[in-house]
Design a protein around this nucleic acid. Sequence first.
DNA 1: CTGTTAGCGCCTTCAA
DNA 2: TTGAAGGCGCTAACAG
Lengths: 329, 329
Amino acid sequence: MKKLTMKEIAKLANVSQSTVSRVINGKEGVNEKLAKRVLDVINEVGFVPNKAAQTLKQNQSYIIGVCVTETYNPYFVELIDTLESVARNYGYNILLHNSKRNPILEWESMENFVSRQVDGIIFVPTSDYNFEKIRKLPIPVVIVTQNHDEFDSVGLDHYKAGQMVAEKFLFANHTTFGMIGNKPDEKFFGFRDTLAENSFTFEMDNYISIQETSSNSFMIRKDIETYLECITDLPFSSVFTTNDLMAMEFVKAIEERGIKVPEDISVIGFDDTILSKMMGISSIHQPIEEMVKTTMKILLDRIENKVSSSKIQIKLEPTLIERKSSRLK
Amino acid sequence: MKKLTMKEIAKLANVSQSTVSRVINGKEGVNEKLAKRVLDVINEVGFVPNKAAQTLKQNQSYIIGVCVTETYNPYFVELIDTLESVARNYGYNILLHNSKRNPILEWESMENFVSRQVDGIIFVPTSDYNFEKIRKLPIPVVIVTQNHDEFDSVGLDHYKAGQMVAEKFLFANHTTFGMIGNKPDEKFFGFRDTLAENSFTFEMDNYISIQETSSNSFMIRKDIETYLECITDLPFSSVFTTNDLMAMEFVKAIEERGIKVPEDISVIGFDDTILSKMMGISSIHQPIEEMVKTTMKILLDRIENKVSSSKIQIKLEPTLIERKSSRLK
DNA sequence: CTGTTAGCGCCTTCAA
DNA sequence: TTGAAGGCGCTAACAG
């Protein structure tokens, strides 16, 4: 079966091409009989209009470029899935790229988005490396899962999440605290500050640093093992991790060493993904659906209005989901 | 920053638009000085050509439509990720859809692919519901992870996988066998036939049926609970599951009932995903990279040659990855 | 209410 | 070696 064009539909239906166009786009003022004849032909031969031509003509592609940093973390998979569904409801397609935390790939993705004439971009930055260039893009951009002043962004109140975890640990009578992450960030500050307000000092020796490049389970595990090999006893009885992957690998690593969760140590992860669910690890939940819907709404506003008003930052509320990995000490 | 066109680049570089086009596409026979002038302008203003226009003109989009049935199973996530990488290396983009095992959504995706002028389609069928229509599509199509006579397809030798698992269980002295899946399929037949060859009959009562619509952990778990509630003792000491999600939910369900893996029962899953890795469940490994590369090669061949030769079916070799969930009885 | 026409940005003959 | 011109499929004035 060959690809059909409106011209051929027009010939088959014995009308002009513009009439076919009008029928397809539901413009009013078309004779009912003619319209029916056209629709019959379309259904019979299974015609669908050429979106490349529409894009060219209308200067609008109905594509949204999405760039994430990884897919090892199921959290991002759910994010992508939700983005696709929500976009579909608005008549948009998703063009997906994975920067793999590589700024070069990230910029390539952005250029490809421009080239493909996407109407807007939603992305999870890998760093601020490309920010200057991205800000100059002739397309609206919204950052998701993180907040940045120079962009429209929809994230989580990470500081508050850190506070919540600290409060939980304090309430459970813990007096020693650890953290696992790539580097100190908002959730760390929330965690540390709350401890400080309660007269506890967070010892930086208790910060287990995971390399930025360690995205999959295996590499995270390696970084954790490196830490564990350097110590004799775990110097903390509670630990907060930057994501569920880290929580999971930590739990597996210490259990192999005979340390029990939650008897010996309480663990709280982040993202509330299938990983923490299946391992029974407490975790900070992010409202993905709300996040995606908000992001999409902001982006569509920008696409339609094209007015430049000041950038908007939205921080959603975290929730702590308690499972069996944390308890009173 | 506004979107630029070749015309404007041409003006800036003081050449004709066709010269800009020639430079961009690396056509030979352009004066070096001119070419440099053009490239300088392009780099300076960051011009990227409009792919919608190229697609229209060249009747080729360099997009491949990909439709999967779900993303709950991390196996498909890895598949998508690999597809994106491999496609990118060939200069192609991926247009991703998730049919969610819904034939209506599946067909919508196909129509969208046609509309978007994709050069080829790679998909995981949700059923044979749309096969007739899909076969008539004016675009080459390859099925992945499953084999079907009427299409080019790249899958796994599921029958052999079933055989391998049966052999493993037999070798470990098991005499009672269970299976968990949506419905009897090739891997079931391989499993059952091999048992039969060794004088064991597979009891259909031991087939735990998961509804086709139960794709996420929660729903799978519910189907398993329903089964477990109907029996007093587990009538088998070894069980083979259609995917790792099912294996994982089964293990969690029976452990809550005090049944121990592998002491009381051996479990072997399918797909060798992060789920079986983290739970220590033995599983059948699928060579995703090889599968994706093969699929892409076949598709690109079809795109380029446009010759119709007979359809090709490829079945890759399964491998059994042994972990702690299976052992000698 | 319907058809004719111009043009979106690009590539590709064709002519110079 | 370079430029001018036509046309890919579609939409949207404009004319009838």
